[in-house]
């Protein structure tokens, strides 16, 4: 991995942590939801500070260069997150639908 990539990774991880910390401070982020981002940032910092870790796994899995492994890891983690998010959106949409129905039915009953 090139030095510049490592620096960018560290920088963006630290930025993410600080951003989340500020959101929590203002009570705009649920703790459960922020755990993922903090952990992701920590993993990225670890990967960029100790490049031996990703190159070990890259060798093990037969990647030609370490950076390919890092990209794949990030894509994988993001896919997992997208999947979880889309499940959550479905749930939320369903709850919203039920709520709207409830309000509308309640209103009709009041009119009658």
């Amino acid at each position: 991995m090139s030095l510049i990539l490592r620096i960018i990774l560290i920088f963006s991880s630290v930025f993410t942590c600080v951003y989340i910390q500020r959101k929590i401070r203002k009570s705009k982020f649920k703790i459960e939801d922020s755990i993922f981002w903090i952990c992701l940032s920590l993993v990225l910092v670890l990967v960029s500070v100790v490049p031996q870790i990703p190159s070990f796994f890259a060798d093990l899995l037969g990647f030609e260069s370490t950076v390919n492994f890092v990209f794949l890891l990030m894509i994988f983690l993001l896919l997992v997150k997208v999947f979880l998010l889309s499940r959550k959106v479905s749930e939320t949409e369903d709850k919203l639908k039920q709520l709207v129905q409830e309000v509308a039915i309640g209103r009709k009953e009041k009119e009658e």
Partner: peptide
């Protein structure tokens, strides 16, 4: 447990 440890040990420092 995971959430409690995280919340008390780390997040509490940030909260207003």
């Amino acid at each position: 447990m995971w959430k409690m440890c995280f919340s008390i040990l780390i997040f509490q420092n940030f909260r207003e």
